[in-house]
Nucleic acid binder design. Structure first.
Lengths: 194, 194
DNA sequence: GTCTATACTTTGATAGAC
DNA sequence: GTCTATCAAAGTATAGAC
């Protein structure tokens, strides 16, 4: 109750993320967000200059998160173990607090918010992440396999939703598959870790 | 059958798919579709009872396509070769004529059109497809690996878009990775960190 | 059966009062 | 910092022309 000082903006972001993740960006109206907060639509426009500006601020958080992982990766030797650690760090980021909701939302709505500059930047960072786990000398199929690792983490919720398993079991399986994918081709089993 | 006047509905579907795929479902207005066809918005409401009804009719096509593959798979012995052939048939369906645009659109906009019953049915059919390539006795990670095969086909365009390759090269790599994923576990690889 | 004219409702957005 | 009032454009709906 104390201090609705500067946190109205944060509340808007929280409610928006919740509703966006639940029903999609376009299906969520500003009236809905405002009503949930007990304010008027116009009040939102004091804190954000547009609806897209709200979603852009959400994307910004994802970008910072991915940026940290890339910065770490850039400073490492380009070894297999670095690649595997990149997967682990991405996995950690997307399972931590709201990271999952954010990344899932971002992936789900990537056409809806196509023109947002922040979204483009995030996509660009994802590509950088993909490049970090890719050996450009490897065969195309092997490069694709490594990059698909990130999608395996993201897609696991949908791909396994008919199975009666816990979130933890799913997370564990997703990480195992992702690490497997990034670890090289099936032909060359001699790619030892480390 | 396709007389001069029965095909307005088809023209609407074609223009809608084109615009939806290009700029997304929500970003495409009925006015835009109508103008492109030289009719009024209201005319669309004679052929379709709502905007969602248009997209539902598009989803219906995808559903029929996937349904055919499932029907074939259900009639086969549940062998490894059947699973591999399921991947090939799905790959063929999504690279044939408009199949690619349809499936890509569907994947890109799956939150935007979440409440469309047809979309739910398509998602349900995808799950059925996933089950057909899954050995329920296998370890969870291996089940996920097999199911991720479909995502590898779908995600290859995004995952490799920084590489200077032809569509054919990408398709070939995607198919190779998908067949690899569906072909079983990689128990021989050590998944523990360094 | 096929479409237009018209109007209704809700959306994202702006201006100005308190 | 939030409100009221208002806007243009969107999706929707129906009456009626041909």
């Amino acid at each position: 109750m104390s201090g609705q000082r500067g946190d109205t903006r944060e509340k808007i972001r929280a409610v928006a993320l919740e509703l966006f993740a639940e029903q999609g960006y376009e299906k969520t109206s500003l009236r809905e967000i405002a009503e949930r907060l007990g304010v008027t639509k116009a009040a939102l426009y004091y804190h954000f200059k547009s609806k897209e500006d709200i979603v852009a601020s959400l994307y910004h958080d994802v970008q910072l998160e991915v940026e940290k992982i890339i910065a770490w990766g850039d400073a490492q030797p380009r070894t297999m173990e670095t690649r595997r650690e990149l997967i682990r760090r991405y996995y950690a980021a997307m399972t931590r607090d709201q990271g999952s909701a954010l990344i899932r939302f971002m992936q789900d709505n990537h056409t809806a918010v196509q023109e947002v500059k922040a979204a483009d930047q995030v996509r660009e960072r994802f590509l950088r992440l993909a490049q970090l786990v890719t050996d450009p000398e490897a065969e195309l199929a092997d490069q694709l396999r490594a990059r698909i690792a990130f999608f395996a983490l993201n897609a696991s919720a949908f791909a396994l939703r008919d199975l009666d398993i816990t979130d933890e079991q799913r997370h564990e399986a997703a990480l195992a598959v992702a690490l497997d994918l990034v670890s090289g081709s099936r032909a060359d089993v001699d790619l030892a870790p480390g």
